[in-house]
């Protein structure tokens, strides 16, 4: 399955990049994230709780960042599995400075799902995936605003 989209952040490109590469920020932004810890400069491990229609469950996964060109682009590889199935995806993220305080994040990716997740959640997965990503970006943007205002939101 292909995923594609973009999101306009209200902040400079370097700030957005720094956030995307900060596991703590990421963990606080992705809905359902239970834990995320850095195990090497480019690898993270963690757990996430996902609910797609009638299927829900915790997934344990690994996130790898490669092809890094700070602050422009990188490739993210995600692999996760849990009792409800598995998911594997590769995505490319691009940051484009549109103005000093406007950064357009574009992503394209492809991912495969399997198990119960695919069998039962198929019809919903695309919309759930998109909405999770968008929610994530929204929170990220709020964090960004707060950071730039010099404080962290609760």
């Amino acid at each position: 399955m292909k995923l594609e989209g973009d999101y306009l952040f209200n902040g400079p490109r370097e700030e957005v990049w720094a956030m995307v590469r900060d596991p703590e920020v990421l963990a606080s932004c992705l809905p359902g994230t239970q834990s995320l810890k850095q195990i090497s400069p480019n690898e993270y491990e963690g757990g996430i709780y996902v609910r797609i229609g009638p299927v829900s469950g915790s997934f344990a996964g690994r996130l790898t960042v490669s092809n890094e060109v700070p602050p422009e682009s990188c490739t993210l590889t995600v692999e996760g599995k849990g009792a409800a199935g598995f998911a594997k995806g590769v995505g490319n993220v691009f940051l484009e400075a549109q103005a000093p305080d406007k950064t357009l994040l574009k992503y394209t990716g492809e991912f495969n799902i399997g198990g119960k997740l695919a069998a039962i959640g198929q019809r919903l997965i695309e919309s759930v995936g998109k909405s999770m990503i968008n929610k994530g970006f929204e929170t990220l943007d709020k964090t960004l605003q707060a950071r730039m205002a010099g404080k962290t939101p609760n």
Binding site: N112, A119, I120
Partner: peptide, 14 residues
């Protein structure tokens, strides 16, 4: 069935 052998409609809903 997708190319990975994942059944996409394993319920009476689909």
């Amino acid at each position: 069935m997708d190319d990975n052998g994942q059944l996409q409609n394993a319920s009476f809903m689909d």
